[in-house]
Structures are given as C-alpha cells and as structure tokens.
Amino acid sequence: MRRRSAVKTLALAAGSTLVGRNLAQGAAPKRGVVDGGAVDTPAILVDTTRCLGCRMCERACAEANGLPEPPKSVEPGVVRDTSETQWTVVNRFETENGPVNVKRQCMHCLQPACASACLTKAMHKTAEGPVTWDPDKCMGCRFCMLSCPFDVPKFEYDSPNPRIMKCQMCWSRLEEGEVPACVQNCPAKAIVFGPRSEMLELGRERIYASPEKYVHQIYGEHEAGGTSLLYLASVPFEQLGFRTDLSTESYPALTTEFLYSVPLVDIALPVFLLGLAKAAKGRHEPESEVDR
C-alpha cells in the first residue's frame, strides 16, 4: 500500500520538476548546494544499524541485472569494492559498537559528476532520478570513472566490447512501478525506497527517536551536493569506509567557471586577435611576401 502511494508521489514529483531539470541539464551545471527538498527524486535510505549482512541484496541485484552470481562466502575483514560483475556489495566493519554492515553502490548523485563528464551523454541522470548508462552512446573514454568522487563506474577491461558497469537503480523496474531489486529483497527492511524528502525525514525521525543509537548525520544529504543514496549509521562514517572529506558542493560546479568562459573566449578572442593583427600590421614595413 505504502509502496504504491510512494510511487505515485514520485511520478508527480518527477513530472513537476521535469521542466526545470531539463533546463538545468542543458546548460552548464549550477553552482552551489542542491537543496534536497527542491529536487524530489526517488532516493534509497540505507539504515546500516538494521542491516543483517545477509547479502540478499547482492544476489537480488545480480539476478535483476543479469550479472554473475556473487561469491557464496566472503573473507571476513576484507573490504570488497563494487566491480564490473557486482554492482552492489555488503561489507562488514568491526567497530566500537560491534559489527556494522554497509551496502555500497552508485550514490546516484543529484548532480552527478559522471554525467557532466560524459561527452556523449551516455551517462545520464534521468528525470526520474536514476543515473543510467547507454551502450549505444558511450565511447569508452572512462572520463566518468576519473570524475566520480565515489569511484563508482567500473569498466570491463577484459572485453573487446567493454561496458561501463554500475548500479542504475533498476530504472526499468521503476518504470514499471516497482522498487529496486535490492530494496524488495531486503528481509530486514534496512533499505527503504521513496521520494528523497521523505527519506530524509524518515532518517531524521529515526535519529531523533533514538539519538543514542545513531550518529547525527545522514550521509548523502550534503555530500557531493547531495545524493539519492542516504545512509544512517551508529558510528562515524569514516569508520565505515566512507569518504568524509568530499565537497558539499556538487562536483560539476567545479567546472562551471571553465565551461562558462569557453563561449566567451571563443567569441571575444578572435575579435581581439583580428584587431591586434591589424594594429601590428601598420607598425611593420610592408611585407615582402607576394600574396599579401
């Protein structure tokens, strides 16, 4: 029940923000922090205190996306990274509060560095929220990998027809009104899917309800200008393998100045050079070359 209404709200939210978002995407990225409430895309709240570490989501993800089955058992203490064959991984961290399980995948940034890096728009933030990859457009330059602050996109180096691999938030399932496979298959309800504003609210509610249980931060609320993956945890995030030194400004904003200056230079410099050439010509003796 709740799920259906969430999807409806989402569709509404997506529709109402469509126009504005399209505008924003056509132009150079906007500077500054994105207000999570203003762009109400779908989001996923991961409550690491609830995660059992059963890795059901890993299996569900592989199944939904046609990826090889994840390893049956994993070595304790080894932090695995997502890879070209595994779009999401759950790692166990031993902390002062006991073991904490953390599911990682693409953060689906509100203003994704990968999409702004992509010169073919193969990497693309859809109006519905997920950041997706289009095999017919990508030329395999791997600039998205270089730019993503979370090092999420992975590349199939061992294939003559390589793809960029990363979580795409099950965009085709969303289109059919379903929730992402990992969310659906989590037995502990540690992963919740819904509009970002609601997810933020839910996160805050949980923190307020049991302040001694949570650190008072929702990772992803501001990181990299805000992401669609939001995290709750009982210990500081740097102990769970999260980068906490990231900018709260969106990453595409780092290139805004350069991108804005390009058309200016393209127009102004030739005019200036022409003037300079004319002025300089007067100062020099007539040139010897015939065809001037």
């Binding site: 150079a28 992509c118 010169l119 193969a122 030329m139 395999g140």
Partner: peptide, 21 residues
C-alpha cells in the same frame, strides 16, 4: 573502449555540452 561510438559527440546525435571532454 568503444571507438565505434566516437562519432556520437561529433555528428551531433549526442552532444554532452556540459562536458569538459
């Protein structure tokens, strides 16, 4: 990696104008 798609940003069926690249 996918050089056959190199024409995409050139012939204009896919302009990533916000891309430095």
């Amino acid at each position: 990696g996918r050089p056959w798609n190199v024409v995409n940003p050139i012939i204009g069926n896919s302009f990533g104008v916000s891309s430095v690249m």
